[in-house]
Structure formats: structure tokens, C-alpha cells
């Protein structure tokens, strides 16, 4: 092959490799995007409402206005991601046409299809998808996702679901590693995932794509905990711009993500951050309002 090839798996998964060890921040204006980049975000997620507001205001949540996405792309030099509804392949086509760097097929928006996710292989723009367990992650990878984020429960500031999902994914990977080859057929059946991907995870001991954590991360210690639990990086949604001092909190979460194994650094950056976002305990959320249960 002598000609240049765009949109290959290696190129799509490659960008996620470059984001590792970093923090991806939700932003709703170009001004917030600037603050995020200046604070050390590795990428931004451009959207009209952060999950906490989607939750508070209710209604159908959709892809953002192209004007907003383009204004944010124009403002920053780091990668810009944007969300499409689960199964809404036309929103994804639009986001690709807008030249976003990553498309998040996200449960934070209202699903557009309760049966099918987007066939992601047909796009040059890479996709990141949410997962609550290994089977779900592998189904998304089978559909062409180039990056996975554990879902957590977005817009709550309650990290417990993020903890549950990253622990679930890593423990299921560890179980596969200890299985014999014949047991993997049954494991694939139980995970409802393709055998080839299950075999690959069993052999390599990790997902074939980068794994970030999302959903409820609000403090430097939350971010560091996700990293210690095996995440390659973190998404912070409402946690930054719904807090008292976004600039300082954003920079603190970036530092805690790099020095996730150094409690002295985490202590230092956690000082005087002001108010964290007002949280909602996931246990208090009635089941229909739990976003992590969207997608399958």
C-alpha cells in the first residue's frame, strides 16, 4: 500500500491511544472550551447542555446545534468530540460532516433506536461508546467503536456507578484471562459477544481499544480512583462547570489523573477548590431516570 489511507481502524483507535492519561471535559460554550484547554484538557466534548441540566430539564436530548460545535472547534486546538443519540446514524453523519474528531454515541442523549446501535464501521470519524460491562463493550467494538468509556451515571456527581462499571469490566477481563480455550466459547455466549473478540481479550488481558471512565467523576480523588481501578483516562461531564471554581477544579483533575498513584499530589491539588457540583445520589434516582440503563 503506497497511498495514504484515512479512517482505518488503526488511525481511529490511534487517536484514543494519544488521549490516554488525560481528561476529556464537557463544555457548552467556546468560553468553557477555552478554559478547559487552558486547564490541560486532552479533548473537549461539545454539547448544548451538560448531563446535570439534561437531567434537571428533562425532555428529549439531541445532537447539539452545528453552529455551537463549529464555534467550539474554532476556539480550541485540542480534539473536539460531540454526541449523537444511540442508533441515530444521521446525527453521526452530520457530526462527521462537521469534522468533529470523535463521535460519542451516548446514552446521555435520548436514544433514537431501541434495537440497533449505529454501524460505526462505515465512518471515517472514530466513535466512543459507553458500556456497563465487558459484553456491552465488546458488542460496541464489534459494531466499530474505536474507544470505550464505562458509563457511570452521568450528571449526578455520584461516582459509585462509575466505580461499579469499571470494576465490572476489569473483573470480567480478569476472568477471561484465567479460562481455558474451550471455556471461552461459553464465556462468549454468556457475554453475548463475538468469540473472536472474547479470545483476543483473553489472550491480551485488555480491551482491543482504549478504556476511559465516565459518569459522576467530580473531584481529583474521583479521577485518581478511576485511574487506579484501571481506566486509561477520564471524562468529566457536569463535574467541572457545575462547580464553584471551574478553572481550578479542571486543572486539579488533570494533575490528579497524571499523578493518580501519588496521594500527596492529589491532596495538594484538592485544597481550596470550593464547592463541588451539587450531587444526586444514584440510589435516589427513580429507575427511568438512570441513563446508564440506556444501551444494551
Amino acid at each position: 500500500m503506497s497511498t495514504a489511507q484515512t479512517g482505518s481502524s488503526r488511525v481511529k483507535r490511534g487517536l484514543a491511544e494519544m488521549l490516554k492519561g488525560g481528561v476529556i471535559m464537557d463544555v457548552v460554550t467556546p468560553e468553557q472550551a477555552r478554559i478547559a484547554e487552558d486547564a490541560g484538557a486532552v479533548a473537549v466534548m461539545a454539547l448544548e447542555r451538560v448531563p446535570a441540566d439534561i437531567r434537571a430539564q428533562g425532555g428529549v436530548a439531541r445532537m447539539s446545534d452545528p453552529d455551537l460545535i463549529e464555534a467550539i472547534i474554532a476556539e480550541v486546538s485540542i480534539p473536539v468530540m460531540a454526541k449523537a443519540r444511540i442508533g441515530h446514524f444521521v446525527e453521526a453523519q452530520v457530526l462527521q460532516a462537521l469534522d468533529v474528531d470523535y463521535i460519542d454515541e451516548s446514552e446521555v442523549l435520548s436514544p433514537a433506536d431501541y434495537v440497533n446501535h449505529i454501524d460505526k464501521w462505515g465512518f471515517d470519524t472514530p466513535f466512543v461508546c459507553g458500556a456497563t460491562n465487558l459484553g456491552e463493550a465488546l458488542r460496541r467494538i464489534n459494531e466499530g467503536a474505536a474507544m470505550i468509556r464505562s458509563k457511570g451515571e452521568a450528571g449526578t456527581g455520584d461516582v459509585s456507578e462509575a466505580t461499579k462499571h469499571i470494576r465490572k469490566i476489569t473483573s470480567e477481563i480478569n476472568q477471561l484471562k484465567s479460562m481455558t480455550r474451550d471455556e471461552l466459547y461459553v464465556a462468549a455466549k454468556e457475554l453475548q459477544a463475538p468469540y473472536e473478540l472474547v479470545l483476543e481479550v483473553a489472550e491480551t488481558g485488555k480491551l482491543p481499544v482504549v478504556l476511559f471512565t465516565a459518569g459522576g467523576v467530580a473531584t481529583p480523588a474521583d479521577a485518581a480512583m478511576m485511574m487506579q481501578l484501571g481506566a486509561d483516562g477520564v471524562f468529566v461531564g457536569s463535574g467541572i462547570f457545575k462547580s464553584g471554581n471551574p478553572e481550578q477544579r479542571a486543572a486539579a483533575i488533570v494533575k490528579a489523573t497524571t499523578f493518580y498513584d501519588d496521594p500527596k499530589v492529589i491532596a495538594e491539588v484538592s485544597r481550596g477548590l470550593g464547592e463541588a457540583m451539587v450531587g444526586i445520589n444514584v440510589g435516589d434516582l427513580p429507575a427511568p431516570h438512570r441513563l446508564a440503563e440506556r444501551g444494551w
Binding site: 503506497s2 489511507q5 484515512t6 481511529k12 490511534g14 487517536l15 469534522d99 474528531d101 470523535y102
Partner: peptide, 14 residues
């Protein structure tokens, strides 16, 4: 920096 444009212009080649 980013001399080729967005991720859609990222590529592999010999």
C-alpha cells in the same frame, strides 16, 4: 501543530 487538519484527515501510509 495539527498540520493535516481534524481526525478525519489522520492517515497511515508507507
Amino acid at each position: 501543530r495539527n498540520a493535516f487538519g481534524s481526525q478525519n484527515q489522520s492517515f497511515e501510509t508507507d
